[in-house]
Design a binder for these strands. Structure first.
Length: 110
DNA sequence: TCGGTGACGCGTT
DNA sequence: GAACGCGCCACCG
């Protein structure tokens, strides 16, 4: 699957559009989102776009790092990590004992 | 205009 | 397999 090179609304909007395609109960990695946007080295920009969502309706909790774990962020990393984990568990995503998701089982394969 | 800054990822140790 | 180093590059002040 390959998506628009870039939306006229900007790279951040391109990332948001792709993230909205992730189905419930599945997760995608930052690098995967970047690659789908034809920007294979822009994984950090995906994180940056998520940090600046500002009320955009995007299932941000379905984006995790390449190791299948939740990345730290914000002023209160623990609180936000717990919230993301809770939202994913509600969708049926399973975390192992060390807080990691099996990407073979729950990774999005577009 | 320009440099610091990351919700990252890969290779190496 | 974890910890570490380093390259990456759009954004924003």
């Amino acid at each position: 699957m390959t998506l628009p090179d870039q939306s006229p609304d900007g790279l951040q909007e391109t990332f948001r559009r792709i993230i909205r395609l992730i189905p419930e109960g599945r997760v995608a990695t930052y690098g995967q989102i970047a690659a789908l946007a034809n920007r294979p080295r822009n994984a950090r920009q995906v994180g940056y776009a998520l940090a600046r969502l500002n009320g955009h309706d995007v299932p941000w909790h379905r984006v995790v790092n390449v190791r299948g774990s939740i990345s730290e962020r914000g002023l209160d990393p623990l609180e936000s990590m717990e919230r993301q984990r809770f939202l994913l568990q509600e969708e049926g995503v399973v975390f192992d004992r060390r807080g990691r998701i099996d990407l073979d089982r729950f990774g999005w394969r577009p």
